[in-house]
C-alpha cells in the first residue's frame, strides 16, 4: 500500500494544472487564439476561460460558476476565414485554433416591474409587460445564439399566445446569459420574458399537493412540539439508538 501522505501528494500533483494555473513545461499541443484582436499562443484542449487565464487575464467579470450554470461567461467569436459570428459559454467550450474572442459580461436589458401575487393569470399579461414581443420577426437568430440550445424563438411565440406552460417548458434550462437579447433585431429580452412566464406558471399553473398543505397545518398546530422537546433533551446515546432504529421506506 502506498504511503497515505504520498497518495495525497500524487493526487495534488495530478491536479496541479486545474488548481494552480498551467506550467508551459507540461504542454505539448498549442493553438493560436485572438483575445480582443491580440494573438496569444495557448495550450490546446483548454476551455476558452482557462486559455484566457493562461494568457494572463485574471477575470473580475465574465466568470462566475465556471460550470455552465450562471451565464456570466457569455462569449462571441468568429473563426479565421469564416463569416459566421458564433456564441459560447467560455467555461464550457474548448478553444480552437484561429478563434477571435470577446466576452460579453453584461447585457443591458430592461426588466418589467410587477408583483407576482397581483398579476392576472391571463393570456395578455406577458404582452402587457413586454409589448416588444409583438415585434418578433421570426428570424430565429436568438435560437441560433443560445448556448443552451433552447428553442428561444418558439418560446417567444408561445409567450405571444400567452401559453405559460409551453414557455416554462421550453425556457426552463435558460441560464440568463443574455446572448439571445444582444443578437435580437427586435430588441426583445427573451430571458426576462421567460422568467416572468415561469414564475406565473409555477405560482398559478401548478397545484400544491394536499399532503404538503396538511403538513403546514400540523406544524401550525404544534403537532411535533412534544416530540422535539424530547429530541432536544436526548443525549447522544439516545440519539444513536433512534438513528439505528430508523426504518428505511421501500424504494
Amino acid at each position: 500500500m502506498e504511503d497515505k501522505k504520498d497518495i495525497m501528494q500524487i493526487i495534488a500533483d495530478a491536479n496541479k494544472s486545474v488548481t494552480t494555473g498551467i506550467d508551459s513545461a507540461d504542454i505539448e499541443h498549442w493553438v493560436w487564439i485572438h483575445i480582443m484582436g491580440r494573438a496569444y499562443q495557448v495550450p490546446a484542449g483548454l476551455t476558452i476561460m482557462q486559455a484566457m487565464e493562461y494568457a494572463g487575464y485574471k477575470f473580475i467579470t465574465s466568470a462566475g460558476c465556471r460550470a455552465g450554470f450562471c451565464g456570466a461567461c457569455a462569449t462571441m467569436y468568429r473563426k479565421e476565414g469564416e463569416y459566421k459570428l458564433q456564441t459560447a459559454m467560455a467555461c464550457q467550450t474548448r478553444v480552437e485554433d484561429g478563434m477571435f474572442l470577446v466576452q460579453i459580461p453584461f447585457a443591458p436589458a430592461q426588466e418589467a416591474t410587477y408583483d407576482i401575487t397581483k398579476e392576472p393569470y391571463a393570456a395578455s399579461t406577458l404582452l402587457e409587460h413586454y409589448p416588444e414581443i409583438a415585434r418578433c420577426v421570426a428570424c430565429n437568430t436568438c435560437t441560433k445564439a443560445c448556448p443552451q440550445d433552447l428553442e428561444v424563438m418558439d418560446y417567444i411565440q408561445d409567450a405571444l399566445r400567452g401559453d405559460y406552460k409551453k414557455v416554462a417548458e421550453r425556457s426552463f434550462d435558460c441560464i440568463q446569459c443574455g446572448l439571445c437579447a444582444v443578437r435580437c433585431p427586435a430588441e426583445i429580452t427573451q430571458f426576462n420574458v421567460g422568467m416572468l412566464a415561469r414564475r406565473m406558471y409555477g405560482r398559478y399553473g401548478m397545484t400544491e399537493p394536499e399532503y404538503a398543505k396538511a403538513r403546514l397545518t400540523e406544524l401550525d398546530q404544534g403537532k411535533y412540539d412534544k416530540e422535539f422537546k424530547k429530541l432536544l433533551a436526548a443525549d447522544v446515546e439516545e440519539l444513536k439508538k433512534r438513528y439505528a432504529a430508523r426504518e428505511r421506506e421501500a424504494d
Binding site: G21, I22, D23, S24, E53, Y54, A55, G56, Y57, K58
Partner: peptide, 8 residues
C-alpha cells in the same frame, strides 16, 4: 489565481 506561470 489561475494565470499561466509564464505570464506571472
Amino acid at each position: 489565481e489561475y494565470r499561466g506561470k509564464a505570464v506571472l
